Amino acid sequence: MDIKLIKQVVDLMKRSDISEFEFEEDGFKLRLSSKGADAPQIIHAAAPVAAAAPAPATAAPAAAAAAPAAEEKGISIIKSPMVGTFYRAASPESPAFANVGTKVGNDSIVCIIEAMKVMNEIQAEMSGVVTEVLVENGEAVEYGQPLFKIKTA
């Protein structure tokens, strides 16, 4: 879980009547509790060592694959702006926002990332043609993870 998201939850707790917040995902547990007017305190935040060990092993090949892509002339990468679940379409019945060969502009929606039960539309923020989709539908993504390769004009 991103520290920015934790700070947002703490701010929300300060502004509302929420006295406890608990979150668990992929073995990571976070529990915040507020007592009276005091600021929320982290009671428990832990990620098991066994769950953390495979993550660097998978992240290393992704980083290695991203390095040559960045060196390709005219190829840019759309990266995930947040941690969440990647969806190529608005619903299972809908067509994908972006496939290989799709022309995109700065405001084109290329995917949705679900984070904390909120569907976030991700824009290309560049113009070009999608040359590769790097993530499978329904897959968990990390902040900064490459999602698409775009051939820019």
Rank of each mutant, 00 (worst) to 15 (best):
H44F: 09
H44M: 12
H44P: 00
A45F: 05
A45G: 03
A46V: 10
P48W: 06
P48F: 10
P48S: 15
P48D: 15
V49G: 02
A51D: 15
A51H: 10
A52V: 15
A53G: 05
A55S: 13
A59N: 14
A60D: 12
P61L: 14
P61C: 01
A62Y: 02
A63S: 11
A64W: 03
A64S: 10
A66K: 15
A67W: 02
A69N: 08
A70L: 11
E71H: 06
E71M: 11
E71D: 14
E72A: 11
E72H: 05
E72C: 02
S76L: 06
S76F: 03
S76G: 03
I78S: 04
I78T: 04
K79Q: 07
K79E: 13
K79G: 01
S80A: 08
P81F: 01
M82N: 01
M82Y: 00
V83E: 09
G84V: 05
G84W: 02
T85I: 10
F86Q: 01
F86Y: 15
Y87F: 12
R88L: 02
R88V: 00
A89E: 05
A89R: 13
S94T: 05
S94Q: 11
S94R: 02
P95M: 03
F97K: 01
F97C: 06
A98M: 03
A98G: 00
N99V: 00
V100W: 11
V100M: 01
V100I: 14
G101P: 04
K103E: 12
K103D: 12
V104M: 06
V104K: 04
G105Y: 00
G105A: 11
N106P: 03
D107M: 05
I109V: 13
I109K: 05
I109L: 04
V110L: 04
V110Y: 04
I112L: 14
E114S: 07
A115G: 02
A115Q: 08
A115K: 00
M116E: 09
M116C: 08
K117I: 01
K117P: 01
V118G: 02
V118E: 13
M119L: 09
N120P: 07
N120Y: 04
E121A: 07
I122T: 04
Q123P: 02
Q123V: 10
E125Q: 09
E125T: 06
M126I: 09
S127E: 15
G128L: 09
G128T: 12
G128H: 11
V129D: 08
V130N: 09
V130S: 09
V130A: 10
E132Y: 00
E132M: 00
E132D: 12
L134C: 09
L134I: 03
E136A: 13
N137A: 08
G138L: 10
E142C: 02
Y143L: 14
Y143A: 11
G144Q: 05
Q145D: 06
Q145M: 13
Q145K: 10
